[in-house]
Design a protein around this nucleic acid. Structure first.
Lengths: 126, 126
DNA sequence: TCTGGTGTGCTATACATATATAACACTAGA
DNA sequence: TCTAGTGTTATATATGTATAGCACACCAGA
């Protein structure tokens, strides 16, 4: 399963929200299918180096929303009701990421063009 | 001056950070030039319908970083003396920023191409 | 000089976020 | 039945975020 969560500590976005967003995006992309088992609370907490309560908060919130189903003693699973992530929301998230990127870059004197060029080189290398 | 700030209440990103990001982004794309006067603390607070202290926090943080200069009684301005940064460190920082970006983008399922396209659009807008 | 607009400083309050720690309840498998 | 692993709950603590309100200091212009 190509499903990995990463926490950006510098983004200012609460950890539990980052977890929720990435799980939902993975579901929308099909990387997480209904019935799939999510990482355990404890394991994900260790992987992300955060407190288990923070993972619980993200999972529980998504269960309330109906996108996840938890079975105490067994695990947390992807529910049948897929979250709706429309084009607008995807665009908004990309905008947010790009704004954050450009803000950091400009703090070091980079222009949009320079960032663009740097990214092109990255792409070529891979 | 085509410089406008908007607050996304749903994003989870603190208001003062959104202000900082957008000011820096406007600088990067040239919409804000050194010496330009920023909106007053009170005016921006009214426009964004937030508390003046939140605006102050954003401005003060950027002054500490050296990107803004405040003149009490007069206003807040884009700094004329942008911080000098060692070229090597600058290059290293761009690498770091790009790495962070790509990690975050991939966590949300965006491809390098999508990120590139988003950046191109940003460039066109400026 | 006076006045209005500006940034600054401070206190207080409320809420959100994340942590640490410990216990509890349920499930699956040996 | 026992055990390990799972999600759950609770308490306490620290920090971050945003608000409200007030007083003060500085500057430019009338």
């Amino acid at each position: 399963m190509e499903f990995r969560i990463e926490i950006d500590e510098k983004s200012g976005v609460p950890y539990y929200r980052q977890i929720m967003e990435q799980v939902k995006f993975a579901m929308a992309r099909g990387h997480l299918q209904p019935g799939d088992r999510l990482p355990t609370v404890r394991q994900l907490a260790v992987d992300l180096a955060i407190n288990p309560n923070t993972v619980i908060r993200a999972y529980r919130q998504m269960e309330i929303e109906g996108v996840l189903e938890t079975q105490q003693g067994s695990g947390t699973y992807v529910g049948r009701h897929q979250p709706k992530i429309d084009r607008l929301e995807k665009q908004r998230m990309l905008d947010q990421i790009l704004t954050d990127l450009l803000a950091r870059a400009s703090a070091y004197g980079y222009s949009v063009e320079e960032v663009l060029e740097g990214l092109r080189q990255r792409k070529e290398e891979s």
